[in-house]
């Protein structure tokens, strides 16, 4: 008996060590990005590369107090959260129907929704521009929120469909017997039960929306421009070149909020997805 525990302990320690090493390997490029953002330009271009350096905030100061960057930050937050929330609410209803309700052609509908993600964004953005412009909808937060749902909803439908299949049926049956309508039962009983899974889905949606570039580039000019557009400008600077310092600095600033958010909801991240992933492909 004691031998097994020892063996188990050893196994756990080995697994822990290995996962820390692997995690570090995946994080190394990001760590490099953060380190580079804190180096002076001459240290960035040292040959051979340096390991220790005098940290400086000069590259961050470039953005501090730039009204444009701050407002674009706020735009990005509004648009990412808005589009993700809308997608999760709407998409999860669909996912529920496809998973639980008797629906003619559910499989075909699910496949079609999934495949709509394969349309090249370039084929969507130009016609969208042509429609939105005469309607006066360019450069509005709501426009980006709505258009982002076009690529987020399929994602939500596909994942949430999995969660609902895994959910026990007893709860909603009880609600239905109590005289609730399906819709009432859904919002009162089912949605709260699936909340952790939906929270995880929402994190993925936020990440996708947070980094979206092409729609933001074409559909905004001034008021609703997002951070990825600023980054694209920095990376394609035709005067100074892509300056490594500023680029890594704003890159770090962009990653930070999501990391904080992810650590905050890490509990949901694994338990939430669990149900969805296991049964996602079983039906």
């Amino acid at each position: 008996m004691a031998q097994t525990t020892l063996k188990q302990k050893l196994g756990t320690t080995a697994a822990a060590a290995a996962s820390v090493v692997l995690c570090a390997a995946f994080l190394l490029p990001v760590a490099w990005m953060v380190a580079t953002s804190l180096k002076s330009t001459s240290e960035i271009f040292a040959i051979p590369p340096t390991w220790s350096f005098e940290p400086t905030l000069e590259h961050y100061q470039r953005f501090a107090g730039q009204a444009r960057i701050v407002s674009r930050y706020i735009n990005t937050i509004i648009i990412a959260i808005g589009s993700s929330a809308l997608s999760v609410i709407v998409g999860s209803m669909c996912g529920y129907a496809l998973a639980r309700l008797r629906l003619r052609g559910a499989g075909v509908i699910a496949t079609l929704i999934l495949v709509s993600r394969a349309i090249p964004p370039i084929a969507l953005v130009v016609p969208m521009y042509l429609v939105f412009r005469p309607l006066g909808l360019l450069d509005k937060h709501i426009t980006l929120i709505i258009t982002y749902t076009s690529f987020l909803i399929p994602y939500v439908v596909w994942l949430s469909r999995g969660f609902f299949i895994a959910l026990p049926t007893a709860l909603e049956d009880a609600a239905l017997v109590d005289g609730c309508s399906r819709l009432g039962a859904y919002f009162r009983i089912i949605l709260p039960t699936a909340l952790p899974g939906l929270a995880a889905t929402m994190i993925f949606c936020i990440i996708l929306a947070w980094n979206e570039l092409l729609f933001a580039l074409i559909l905004t000019n001034r008021e609703a421009v997002t951070i990825p557009v600023s980054l694209a400008g920095l990376a394609a600077d035709t005067e100074q070149g892509a300056l490594w310092g500023p680029l890594t600095a704003i890159g770090t600033l962009t990653v930070l909020p999501i990391i904080v958010f992810a650590l905050f909801v890490q509990k949901y991240l694994v338990t939430g997805l669990a149900a969805g992933a296991t049964s996602g492909a079983t039906n």
């Binding site: 130009v126 580039l217 074409i218 000019n221 001034r222 694209a232 400008g233 394609a236």
Partner: peptide, 20 residues
């Protein structure tokens, strides 16, 4: 002044001019 990244400047200007 509205800045646009170099790579997408031409298509944006073309869209801007031709659609209304």
């Amino acid at each position: 002044i509205d800045p646009v990244p170099y790579g997408e400047l031409l298509p944006k200007q073309l869209l801007e001019l031709t659609s209304g």
